[in-house]
Structure formats: C-alpha cells, structure tokens
Computed example of a mutant assay.
Amino acid sequence: MGFRLEWGFRRITVLDLSETALARTRARLLKEAPVDWVVENVVDWKPNQRFDI
C-alpha cells in the first residue's frame, strides 16, 4: 500500500539513485504535486531537515 496525495500530505521527498527512475515517476504525477525530487545515495545523503517515514 503506497501513499496517496489525496490523503493530505503537504510535503513529500522522493530519493533515488537513478535520475531515470525519478523522471518516470515524476511523469506519472500531477505537475503541482508537492514533491521534492532528490537524486542521491541514501547512505551519503545529508538531509537538512527531519523526516517522518
């Protein structure tokens, strides 16, 4: 079961190593979707905020 934008999420961050994978996912979402796209290795990523998972 995945998340749904209709559930009221205000800010979503999607992290992946692959720009291609992110581009494919981005293409399936509405342009106004509140998503921050990050191309990075999760092991090396240093976020500047805390996240709920």
Rank of each mutant, 00 (worst) to 15 (best):
1 M>G: 11
1 M>E: 05
1 M>K: 09
1 M>Y: 06
1 M>S: 10
2 G>R: 07
2 G>T: 05
2 G>Q: 06
3 F>G: 13
4 R>I: 06
4 R>W: 07
5 L>T: 07
5 L>C: 06
5 L>G: 09
6 E>P: 01
6 E>S: 14
7 W>F: 08
7 W>Y: 08
7 W>A: 12
7 W>I: 05
7 W>T: 08
8 G>A: 05
8 G>T: 05
9 F>W: 07
9 F>Q: 06
10 R>K: 11
10 R>T: 06
10 R>P: 02
11 R>T: 09
11 R>C: 06
12 I>F: 01
12 I>R: 05
12 I>V: 13
13 T>A: 12
15 L>N: 09
16 D>F: 13
16 D>Q: 11
17 L>K: 13
17 L>T: 08
17 L>A: 14
18 S>L: 07
18 S>P: 06
19 E>W: 07
19 E>S: 10
20 T>E: 10
20 T>A: 13
21 A>M: 11
21 A>R: 12
22 L>P: 01
22 L>N: 06
22 L>R: 07
22 L>I: 04
23 A>N: 08
23 A>I: 03
24 R>T: 10
25 T>W: 03
26 R>D: 00
27 A>H: 07
27 A>F: 01
29 L>Y: 02
30 L>Y: 04
30 L>G: 13
31 K>N: 07
32 E>W: 08
33 A>R: 05
35 V>L: 12
35 V>C: 02
36 D>S: 12
37 W>L: 11
37 W>F: 09
37 W>D: 09
37 W>N: 14
38 V>Q: 01
38 V>I: 12
38 V>Y: 02
39 V>A: 10
40 E>H: 12
40 E>R: 03
41 N>L: 01
41 N>C: 09
42 V>R: 00
42 V>F: 01
43 V>Y: 00
44 D>P: 01
45 W>M: 05
45 W>Q: 02
46 K>E: 14
46 K>A: 14
47 P>C: 05
47 P>F: 03
47 P>T: 10
48 N>R: 10
48 N>A: 14
48 N>Q: 15
49 Q>V: 15
49 Q>C: 15
50 R>C: 11
51 F>Q: 14
51 F>W: 15
52 D>L: 15
52 D>H: 12
53 I>F: 15
